[in-house]
Each structure stands twice: as structure tokens, then as C-alpha cells.
Computed example of a mutant assay.
Amino acid sequence: MTTHPSAPERSVVDRTLSILGVFDRDNRTLTLSDISRRSGLPVATVHRIVNKLHGWGALERGEEGGYSIGLKLWETAMLAPRYSGLAEAAQSHLVELHDQSGGAAVLALRDGKESVCLSILSNDPGLTAYRGGPGCRLPLHVTATGLVLLAHASVVLQDEICAGPLRAYTAATITNGATLRNQLSRTRREGYAMVCSSLHEGRGAIAAPVRNACGTVVASVGVVGPLNMLQPSRLAPLVMATAEAVSQQDRTEGRRMAGVGA
């Protein structure tokens, strides 16, 4: 089969990844036509690959014919060292932080220019409506956990993000590069980051870094709640102590996290 040099044929792996990549939080269940449209692949190709994925368990088919991510793929993803090690080390400490603070306890790590929520414990049913649950991605400049991760990222990444554009979620979101640089410096100096109404009006957060045995920041722990709850004098020491406890437990258990998030 001859293909045009400007439009090389996509490999089976590329096409399979394209199909899996069309699913997101706003598109959890899709028909074959939806998958074809969003992936840019012919329906016949989608049908063939989806059948393979369905047979393996990577996709599940609902009663109405739509497809969603399957348990097999979820189980495989749970084996990722960056998730499993951190989540296990942090769980009991997040429970304690949630109980002591009265707010939602969050654990996040960095993936490129975004923070990824690994775990969140909350009694607030509306929290995930705007912040999202495990797996939710947000720009680093928007949340307290993201600011902590960015503050300890490479200078190259900091320069790139500060150069903008910086998406505004509310009037309080940092959208100025110089302001963001100042916030990052303050975060490193004070040992924690605090945001107010940067993602959602009336909500804020305080977060601190989790470090591996080499001292590299690999994740961040935070508390999210209404603004009247965010008292730095009370919550900052609590959040920093929790982050240190997670760091210490991870070291004690011998998990090798060197280089993660660097």
C-alpha cells in the first residue's frame, strides 16, 4: 500500500492510543461514531480496534452500546509506581489531615505543566464539581499544590510557564508572569503555598512539598476549603507536618522516588 509522504500511515499503536485518548472527564462514555470523530480515524478502523480493547478489558460496553474505560485498564494504571507508592504512603496521613483541618485533604504530583490529583478526601460533595477527583489535571499556576510543584520544578519550566499565557479561572487567578514568579519565590521561602479563590470563588487552599530521600520535591499535600477556614497560622504548620510525615514514611518504606517530577 502506498501512502502520501506528507501523511504517513499511523501505526496500530498510535491508532490505539488515539482511541484511548478520546476519553476524558467530560466524555466518559462514547459511541463508535463519537470515537471516530474525536480520534480522526475511520469508523471501520475504530470498530476493529475497539473490539480488541473490549475483549482485553481496556474498554467496557454499556447496555445502550456506548463504550467507557474498562476495569482492566484501571487496574493496570494502579500499578504505576508514581501513583501506588505515593498514594499508599500518604493515605493514613491524608485521613488525619482531613480530620484535623476540617477541609479536603489532597495529594498531587506534577506531570509536565499540570498537576495531577492522586487522592482527595472530602466531605464536601461540591468540591469535585470544580476541583475534580483522582486523575484530574489542572494548570500548575492555579492551585496551591500546583504552585508548590512549580516552585520546585526546573528553571526552564518556570520560565516557560511564567512567559504565559496563564489561563484565568476567576478574577483572583494569577495571570501575570512577574506575579507568579514572586509567588513561587515566596513558596520556596515560606515552605508552603496559599491561594484564595484562584480556582473557585470562596474557596482556597494551603499546600506543602513532599520530598524523596534525595530531597527532591516529588508531590505536594494540601488542604482545600472555604476561605474562612484558611488560617495560615493554624493550617500551614499542620499541612507542612503532614507533607513531612508522608516524605518520612516513604523513605522508611524504602520506595525509590528519586527523579520523579524532576
Rank of each mutant, 00 (worst) to 15 (best):
V12E: 12
I19R: 08
R28A: 09
L30Q: 14
D34G: 09
D34M: 04
I35W: 10
S36Q: 09
S36Y: 04
L41A: 08
P42C: 10
V43N: 12
V50R: 07
L53W: 08
H54W: 12
G65F: 04
G70V: 02
L71Y: 15
L73T: 07
W74C: 06
E75G: 10
A80Q: 11
G85F: 01
A87E: 01
E88H: 03
A89W: 01
H93N: 10
L97D: 02
D99K: 10
A105V: 03
L109E: 04
D111R: 02
K113I: 04
S115H: 06
V116D: 05
L118H: 14
S119E: 15
S119M: 15
I120L: 15
R131L: 07
L140K: 05
H141A: 02
T143C: 00
G146F: 06
L147R: 14
V148R: 11
V148E: 05
V155K: 11
V155F: 07
D159F: 00
I161N: 07
A163V: 01
I174Q: 07
T175R: 09
A178K: 09
E190I: 14
M194H: 12
V195S: 02
S197K: 09
E201S: 11
A208T: 06
V210R: 11
N212S: 15
A219T: 04
V221E: 06
G222A: 14
V224W: 13
N228T: 12
M229L: 15
L230I: 12
Q231P: 01
L235I: 15
A243K: 01
Q248E: 05
D250L: 13
